[in-house]
Simulated assay, not measured.
Amino acid sequence: MTNLLFEEGFIFAYAGGHLFCLDADSGHVCWENKLVGLGYGACIIAIENPNASLIANQLQQAQQASVSAAVVASSAAVAGSSGSGE
C-alpha cells in the first residue's frame, strides 16, 4: 500500500515502512525516513491546510442542499398522489 501527497512542488510518499519526499519536477529524493521500529502498517500523511474548514463547509452545504432537494421532491410526490384519487 502506498500513500501519496502532492504539496507545493513536492511529492510525499509512504511505502514499505519508508517515508519519502521527492521533488515533483526532477524526481530527486529530497529526504527519506526509514521509520525504524514503526513497522509496515498504514500511514496517514497530513498537512496544515488553511482552506480545510472552507472545504468542509462547502461539502456540508452541498450535502444539506441534496437532502433538502430530496425532501422537497418526496413531499411533492406525496402531495400529487394524495389529490389525484378523489
Rank of each mutant, 00 (worst) to 15 (best):
M1L: 09
M1C: 11
T2H: 07
N3Q: 13
L4H: 04
L4I: 07
L5Y: 01
L5E: 03
L5M: 09
F6H: 06
F6Y: 15
F6I: 11
E7A: 11
E8D: 13
G9I: 00
G9M: 06
G9Q: 04
G9F: 03
F10H: 13
I11L: 15
I11R: 00
F12W: 11
F12S: 04
A13C: 10
Y14G: 07
Y14F: 13
G16I: 05
G16A: 07
G16M: 06
G17C: 00
H18D: 15
H18C: 12
L19E: 04
L19K: 02
L19A: 10
L19G: 05
F20W: 09
C21F: 01
C21A: 15
C21Q: 14
L22E: 00
A24F: 08
A24V: 03
A24M: 03
D25W: 08
S26W: 04
G27P: 02
G27N: 03
H28L: 14
V29D: 02
V29F: 00
C30K: 09
C30R: 14
W31S: 11
E32R: 15
K34T: 14
K34G: 10
K34R: 12
V36P: 01
L38D: 07
G39A: 03
Y40P: 03
Y40I: 11
G41V: 05
G41F: 05
G41S: 15
A42M: 08
A42K: 12
A42Q: 13
A42P: 11
C43M: 12
C43D: 01
C43A: 15
C43L: 14
I44C: 12
I44S: 14
I44W: 09
I45F: 01
I45P: 04
I45C: 05
I45L: 07
A46Y: 03
A46L: 08
A46M: 06
A46R: 08
I47W: 03
I47C: 13
E48G: 05
N49M: 04
N49L: 02
N49W: 01
A52N: 10
S53N: 13
S53M: 08
S53Q: 15
S53A: 11
L54M: 04
L54F: 06
L54T: 12
I55W: 01
A56E: 02
A56I: 01
N57D: 13
N57P: 00
L59P: 00
L59R: 02
L59K: 07
Q60Y: 06
Q60V: 07
Q60M: 06
Q61M: 05
Q61V: 07
Q61K: 06
A62P: 00
Q63Y: 08
Q63L: 07
Q64H: 04
Q64C: 00
A65T: 03
A65F: 02
A65H: 05
A65D: 10
A65K: 09
S66L: 06
S66D: 11
S66R: 09
S66W: 05
V67W: 02
V67C: 04
S68K: 12
A69E: 09
A70M: 06
A70F: 04
A70Y: 01
V71I: 14
V72L: 13
A73M: 06
A73S: 11
S74T: 10
S75Y: 12
S75A: 14
V78E: 09
A79K: 05
A79L: 09
G80T: 12
G80I: 02
S81P: 00
S81R: 13
S82I: 15
S82E: 14
S82W: 10
G83P: 10
G83I: 14
G85V: 11
E86L: 13
E86Y: 15
E86V: 14
